[in-house]
């Protein structure tokens, strides 16, 4: 078990090195930090002094190792735009994005799985058809359009839910902030949560449905029926569990995608998360923020992969090699 986690962590190192190199390359070769930091008026002597101070006159592999080293210490440089350390900027934004992503994923899972099971079992019922047509729309509706439609409907016309921002947040621990503790904070999560989660929900529903149809045809399900097990036990105990491995994979990857690419939703709802920060940083070529963001997302994906592997391990005894 611990050996398994350990080997996974070892495998993660080369991935992080490569992503780190890309982040470093962004740093080193895109834009010119010296002229950005010095502004228009400077002497050649000042420039050389700064280049030396930043270590830009050293060979690039030395710079790369130094870059990795500082990253390892949580130092991702200073944002050109906001003149603040990038690490604390991201840490400030991370809770907002994670809470939004978790809300979206929980919504998608809690609604998508039962809908998938239902449409898998009652293939030809009217409700199943409604779900299937609805899910097609869910898949094809662009996120920004969905967000704007939801705002028009529930914020502008009905006035039920806020159209932007995170609402009031409460500090938990040294740097985490949460919106879950107040009703206003939860209300603020609803529309962006739906916007971000709808695509994922339809995807989960279709995947669970397809897997259910597949599993319900297997011999062990036929044998379970032949033994007189109840429909409930067959559908939810035997069939659903066998659909879980692919579903876990997709949910994991999607969660990574949601964290990494929540920028559209965050922009539409002016959500103070990392996605919004990235959009603002890209606009002014704020390289330190961009490269740190890249590293952070790689880390998120690696963590999710590890969790997904552990879940496989928990679900499928055939993967528990040895003992």
């Amino acid at each position: 078990m611990f050996g398994f986690i350990g080997s996974r962590l070892l495998q993660a190192i080369p991935v992080l090195m490569v992503v780190g190199f890309i982040a470093f390359a962004l740093f080193a070769f895109v834009g010119d930090p010296v002229s950005i930091l010095l502004g228009q008026d400077h002497t050649e002597a000042q420039r050389i002094a700064l280049v030396h101070q930043l270590g830009l006159d050293q060979p690039f592999y030395v710079q790369y190792v130094k870059f990795l080293w500082t990253c390892l210490h949580g130092d991702f440089g200073v944002s050109y735009r906001l003149a603040q350390p990038v690490g604390s900027l991201l840490a400030e934004r991370l809770p907002a994005t994670l809470e939004l992503a978790i809300t979206a994923s929980v919504l998608a899972f809690a609604i998508g799985v039962p809908m998938g099971v239902y449409t898998g079992i009652h293939r030809d019922s009217l409700l199943s058809r409604v779900f299937m047509v609805g899910s097609l729309m869910g898949v094809s509706l662009p996120t920004f359009l969905l967000g704007i439609l939801l705002i028009l409907c529930f914020s502008v016309a009905l006035g039920w839910l806020p159209s932007f921002g995170r609402g009031p947040v409460v500090h938990v621990g040294s740097w985490w902030t949460t919106g879950f503790t107040s009703w206003a904070g939860i209300r603020a999560l609803i529309l962006p949560g739906i916007t971000l989660g709808l695509f994922q929900m339809t995807l989960i529903m279709r995947l669970v449905r397809a897997e259910m149809l597949e599993v319900l045809r297997t011999d062990y399900i036929k044998f379970a029926r032949a033994r007189g097990l109840t429909n409930r036990s067959i559908n939810f105990g035997h069939a659903l569990k066998n659909t879980l491995v692919p579903v876990i994979t997709i949910i994991g990857l999607q969660f990574g995608g949601i964290v990494g690419f929540s920028l559209v939703t965050e922009t539409v709802f002016q959500w103070p998360g990392m996605g919004l920060l990235l959009v603002q940083s890209v606009a002014v070529a704020d390289i330190p923020v961009m490269s740190a963001y890249l590293l952070l997302i790689a880390l998120v994906f690696l963590l999710i992969n590890l969790i997904v592997d552990l879940l496989y391990y928990a679900v499928d005894p055939r993967l528990r090699i040895g003992r």
Binding site: T218, D219, Y220, K222, F223, A224, R225, A226, R227, G228, L229, T230, N231, H238, K241, N242, V315, D316, P317, R318
Partner: peptide
């Protein structure tokens, strides 16, 4: 359903696929 298993049992052909692997 209550007859299946209780009054009439069934044995299938391929034991590699008739048991739930999980």
């Amino acid at each position: 359903r209550r007859i299946r298993g209780r009054r009439i049992g069934t044995i299938f052909q391929d034991p590699l696929t008739t048991l739930n692997p999980l």
